Amino acid sequence: MAVCQHFHTTESLSDSLNASALPERNDQKLTCVELFAGCGGLAAGLQLAGFEHSCMVESNPVACETLRRNFRQSRSGSHPLVLEQDVRTIQWGDSGEVALLAGGPPCQPFSFGGLAEGKRDSRDMWPEAVRAVRELRPRAFLFENVRGLLRPSFAEYLDGIVNRLAYAGGQRGHKAPLYNVAVVLVDAADYGVSQRRHRVFIGGVRADCGTLRPFPAPTHSFRRLVWEKWVSGTYWHRHAISSPESHTPTRIEQSILRKLRDTGLEPQEGAWGTCRDAFAGLGEPMHGSNPLRHELRRGARQYPGHAGSPVDSPAKALKAGAHGVPGGENVLVDSDHSVRYFTVREAARLQGLPDSFIPSGSWSEAMRQLGNAVPVQLAEVAGRWIRSCID
Rank of each mutant, 00 (worst) to 15 (best):
A129W: 00
T343D: 04
S194H: 10
S122C: 09
A280E: 13
F7S: 10
L225S: 01
R251T: 13
E58A: 07
R151S: 15
A168P: 07
P359I: 00
Q73E: 15
S74G: 13
A379C: 11
L378W: 05
L353Y: 06
F279Y: 13
K119E: 15
V339Q: 00
G270Y: 05
A44D: 07
G264M: 03
G361P: 08
H79Q: 12
Q171A: 13
R131G: 02
R298G: 07
S76V: 14
A317L: 06
H306Q: 15
R172S: 11
I241D: 06
E245C: 04
R298T: 14
G273E: 04
F222G: 00
V381W: 00
P285Y: 04
R261F: 01
A166L: 02
S122F: 07
E269T: 14
P326Y: 00
G96W: 02
G96I: 03
Q254D: 08
K316F: 09
R196K: 13
G203P: 06
Q268G: 07
Q254L: 11
L260G: 02
G118F: 01
A2Q: 12
D27K: 13
Q85V: 10
A132G: 10
G160M: 01
P138N: 07
A347H: 03
Q302M: 15
S95D: 02
R68W: 01
E144K: 00
C32I: 08
R197I: 04
V376Y: 00
T89W: 00
H237M: 09
T10I: 09
P138H: 03
D86T: 07
W227N: 03
